[in-house]
């Protein structure tokens, strides 16, 4: 069978510890709380009928469509969380103005690049959040995520040289650091601090410029 370029990479599951019973229960409580909150927001009024209705719907939903286990090892740190959101909103505005300006600027064809960024904390949650945030901040759009190595492949718009590409790579890692600072465990935060500049994946070294 000839491997075909069109299919994305198979997600090869990295070895992960199975969740303990307490962690499973905590995940379920977070999921139910989130679903009940959405239900109440949909109805628009906070009444006991809505809360109980939401609980019933959430229980049925989780029984019929069980969520994949997500490891949330840390806890929410309010101040870094606020810092992340402020920076995120600023980035979203900058990104929108940048794209709008590029669109309206006459006679300009934006150049771009596809870069690989290996994240320091390889958890599903961190990979997802970083990818989501990346797609909404200036210049970047997520193309592919490799779960086995924790690598994000990012399409960057408006770069013209290798220098700018490297600057952008650092920007992605800073975004990851902000997310980990907001929700990561102390172990993850230590890893982010220790590995200030992780080496690029082996197969990317010596890529011709």
């Amino acid at each position: 069978m000839k491997p075909d370029q069109m299919t994305p990479a198979e997600p090869t599951d990295p070895p992960r510890r199975p969740l303990s019973r307490a962690a499973l229960r905590r995940n379920r409580i977070i999921a139910v709380t989130g679903l009940v909150a959405v239900w109440i927001l949909l109805w628009g009024t906070f009444t006991w009928a809505n809360v109980i209705g939401g609980l019933v719907v959430a229980t049925v939903l989780l029984a019929v469509f069980p969520l994949p286990p997500v490891t949330f090892a840390g806890r929410i740190h309010p101040l870094p969380m606020l810092r992340f959101w402020l920076r995120f909103l600023r980035d979203l505005v900058v990104a929108s103005v940048q794209i709008a300006w590029m669109a309206l600027r006459p006679g300009h064809t934006p150049r771009s690049a596809i870069i690989a960024v290996r994240l320091r904390v390889n958890t599903d949650l961190n990979l997802t959040l970083t990818a989501e945030a990346l797609s909404l901040v200036p210049g970047s759009l997520i193309l592919e995520a490799d779960r086995s190595t924790g690598t994000l492949f990012v399409h960057v718009i408006g770069v013209n040289s290798r220098d700018e590409v490297e600057r952008f790579r650092r920007g992605v890692l800073e975004l990851e650091a902000r997310i980990i600072a907001a929700i990561g465990s102390s172990d993850e935060q230590r890893r982010v601090r220790e590995v200030a500049h992780p080496p690029p994946p082996a197969d990317l070294e010596g890529v011709p410029t």
């Binding site: 069109m6 690049a113 870069i115 759009l141 997520i142 193309l143 690598t151 040289s161 990317l204």
Partner: peptide, 29 residues
């Protein structure tokens, strides 16, 4: 949504590779 569309279209003629400074996903694939 942007990721799904981008990934579905990636290795294809519609992508202007001449405008890319570097393409590290191709090496990965």
């Amino acid at each position: 949504a942007a990721h799904m569309v981008g990934r579905a279209a990636y290795p294809h003629d519609d992508i202007r590779t001449d405008l890319l400074v570097t393409d590290e996903l191709a090496a990965h694939l």
